[in-house]
Simulated scan of single mutants.
Amino acid sequence: MGELGLNKIFGALLATALGLMALMQLPGLVFGGAGGGHGEAHGEEMTLSQTMCSQFHHCVDIAEAASAGAVAEAVFDLGAALASADTARGERIFAGQCSTCHTITPGGANGTGPNLNNIVMANKAHMEGFNYSGPMANAEGQWSYENLDAWLKSPAGYMKGTSMSFAGLKKDADRANVIAYLAANTVNAAPFPAPLAAAEAVEGETVPAEGEVVPAEGEAVPAEGEAAPAEGETAPAEAPAEEVVPT
């Protein structure tokens, strides 16, 4: 065999060895390293908070920051809603959602539910002879405006075990309109509750009486019995003490 033949054999062996080496390195190239390194990478992972702290020096707990933005639930002002309620709108809601089971005319017959004439401030089981469910028959108290509002919002939530299947009126304005209509059909109905104060006084702050003048910031408060200076008038300076002449 000549030198050319030996070179061909050597070249073939070398190509085979290089091919085997390439196949051995292929998994590492495809999957980004050997199997042991994959587990180590997971062990070195950091949370979002740790990453923010290390890279941007912003060491705030992400969960706490999210909870700090919670918005307090608004308080429903029943008094204000009733003061601006639309009785005609309440009548339409009653006709559409309540009249199937209830009448409201004076002396009207009971249906699936009792007649609701003169319901405001009546006892909860107010209609004699009507077959109330057990919870309603044993319920104490009266149908105040607050109780009517809670009942109309969710009868089942207000009184567990009631036989009334009505889901309730979820909109505050709808309930206020219906309650105003019930009050219009109650003889000598009680006055609506007063609206909540638009802005409550700061704790410890004295609220001036009606007609009382509040001095501006930095202005002296006149002593009791002393008249306050008129607008634009300068308050007189304190009178000098009586000078004593030596004898």
Results as ranks from 00 to 15, higher is better:
S54T: 00
G157I: 12
G108Y: 09
G111F: 05
T105D: 14
A63D: 12
D61G: 07
F56P: 00
G141P: 00
L48H: 03
W151A: 15
A83E: 02
G113Q: 05
M121I: 01
D77F: 11
A85Q: 01
P114I: 15
Y158I: 08
Q97G: 00
G96A: 14
A109R: 09
E45F: 08
V75T: 15
M52W: 04
M127Y: 06
N110E: 12
R92S: 15
M136Y: 01
A66I: 15
Y132L: 13
Y132I: 14
S54N: 00
E40T: 05
R92C: 10
L152T: 07
A139Q: 10
G113W: 02
W143N: 01
R92I: 15
G107M: 09
L82F: 03
G141R: 08
R89N: 15
G69Y: 09
E128L: 13
S163W: 09
C101M: 10
C98H: 05
T51I: 00
K124W: 04
G129V: 04
I62R: 04
F130H: 06
T87E: 13
M52H: 03
I119K: 04
G43A: 15
M127C: 07
G107Y: 07
A88R: 05
L78F: 09
P114R: 10
G111P: 00
A41W: 06
M136L: 13
C101D: 09
A125M: 09
A85P: 04
S144T: 11
G39H: 08
N138D: 12
M46W: 04
I104D: 09
N117H: 08
L148P: 10
A85H: 01
G39W: 09
G141A: 12
N123V: 04
M127T: 10
C59K: 09
I62N: 06
V71P: 00
S84K: 11
S133E: 01
S163G: 14
A137W: 01
A95K: 12
V71D: 03
F94M: 05
H42C: 11
